[in-house]
C-alpha cells in the first residue's frame, strides 16, 4: 500500500511536484499520466528514495523513503526512463549483477521473469548495448524484477518504443499483477491509461484527478461533438470567437467541441455552421475519451 501525502518538490522557481496526494492499493497497476514536464519523474524519484521531498510524505507499507531508504531499496524494482544498464556487459552478466547486488540468484526468482527473459535469452551472450530498443526494455524489466520486488516503479517505459512493443509491454505488466506485485508506471500516452487499474492525471506538478480509466471518461461533464470540415483552421477560429463555445481543440481529423448551452444538439450546430458558411460541416456527438477529460481538467487548472 503506497500512500503519498501533500508531496512537494521545488527546483529554484520551478515547482516540479506541487501538493500531490494519492494512494495505491496492493497489487494494483497504477498509471501516472501526463505530458512531458508534468513532474512524473520527480514524483517517482521521491517515492523510490532517490530524492528527498521538500515537504509532504511518502509511505510504502509504513516505511518512509527518507528514513527507511535501506529497507525500501530492497523492496523496490526501478526502471528509469533512460536505459541505464551496463551496455558493455552481456545480457546475462547484467542480470546476474543485479541479482547478486540484491543478494539473490537468477535461479531463485527465475519464475518471475521467465515470460519476459525467455524472449531475450537466446541473446544472453550479447552485450546489452547491442540489443534493439524492445529487447533492452525487456532486459531492464527483468533486472528490475530479479530480486522479487514488492513494488515495481517504471518511469515512462514505453517512450520511444514502437506500437507493437508497447502493446506487448503492457501485456507483460498485466501478467505480472498475478504475482501480487504493485506496479507504478508513468506514461505520456493517454491511450495506455485504459490498461491501468487506476490512473492519476498529472499536469504542471499537480495531480488533476485519480480514478479508474472508466471513471475518468465518465466524469466528462457535457456533451462532446466531433466536427469535421475541409477548412479546419478557419472553423477553429470561428468557434473560438463564438460566445457559446466552451472548448474546442483538434482531435485527429476532427475537432472536439463543447458548447456552453444546455439545449444544443447536432442539428442546431449544423445550422449555425451553415449560416457561418461552413456548408460541408459534419457534426456527430462522440463518446469522450480520456484525452477529452484531460483537456477539460487542464482547462480548469489554467
Amino acid at each position: 500500500m503506497i500512500e503519498v501525502r501533500n508531496l512537494k518538490k521545488q527546483y529554484g522557481d520551478l515547482i516540479a511536484v506541487n501538493d500531490v496526494s494519492f494512494s495505491v492499493n496492493e497489487g494494483e497497476l497504477f498509471g501516472v499520466i501526463g505530458p512531458d514536464g508534468a513532474g512524473k519523474t520527480t514524483l517517482f524519484r521521491m517515492i523510490n528514495s532517490l530524492i528527498i521531498p521538500d515537504s509532504g510524505s511518502v509511505s510504502l507499507w509504513g516505511l518512509n523513503p527518507v528514513t527507511d531508504y535501506k529497507a525500501i531499496r530492497e523492496m523496490i524494482g526501478y526502471m528509469p526512463g533512460r536505459f541505464s544498464l551496463y551496455e558493455d556487459l552481456s545480457v546475462e552478466e547484467n542480470l546476474e549483477f543485479f541479482a547478486t547486488v540484491f543478494g539473490t540468484t537468477i535461479e531463485e526468482n527465475y519464475h518471475l521473469i521467465k515470460d519476459i527473459y525467455a524472449q531475450i535469452e537466446p541473446f544472453k551472450k550479447r552485450k546489452a548495448g547491442q540489443l534493439s530498443g524492445g529487447m533492452k526494455q525487456k532486459l531492464a524489466l527483468s533486472c528490475a524484477l530479479i530480486h522479487k520486488p514488492r513494488i515495481l516503479v517504471l518511469d515512462e517505459p514505453t517512450t520511444g518504443v514502437d506500437a507493437v512493443s508497447r502493446y506487448e509491454f503492457w501485456d507483460m505488466l498485466i501478467k505480472l499483477k498475478q504475482n501480487n506485485i504493485t506496479i507504478l508506471v508513468s506514461t505520456p500516452y493517454m491511450d495506455e491509461a485504459s490498461k491501468c487499474d487506476r490512473v492519476a492525471l498529472m499536469q504542471n506538478g499537480h495531480v488533476l484527478m485519480v480514478d479508474t480509466p472508466w471513471g475518468i471518461e465518465n466524469g466528462f461533464s457535457t456533451s462532446l461533438y466531433g466536427l469535421k470540415t475541409i477548412n479546419k483552421y478557419k472553423l477553429i477560429q470561428f468557434l473560438r470567437s463564438s460566445v457559446s463555445c466552451k472548448s474546442v481543440y483538434p482531435f485527429g481529423e476532427y475537432l472536439h467541441y463543447c458548447d456552453k448551452r444546455e439545449d444544443v444538439n447536432e442539428k442546431i450546430l449544423i445550422e449555425e455552421l451553415k449560416q457561418a458558411g461552413f456548408f460541408d460541416a459534419i457534426v456527430d456527438e462522440v463518446k469522450p475519451g480520456i484525452e477529452d477529460r484531460f483537456m477539460e481538467l487542464m482547462g480548469n487548472v489554467i
Partner: peptide, 13 residues
C-alpha cells in the same frame, strides 16, 4: 553520464 548511477542508487549497494 550514462545513467547507470541512477539504477545503482536504488539498489542496496
Amino acid at each position: 553520464e550514462i545513467g547507470t548511477m541512477e539504477q545503482i542508487n536504488v539498489t542496496p549497494v
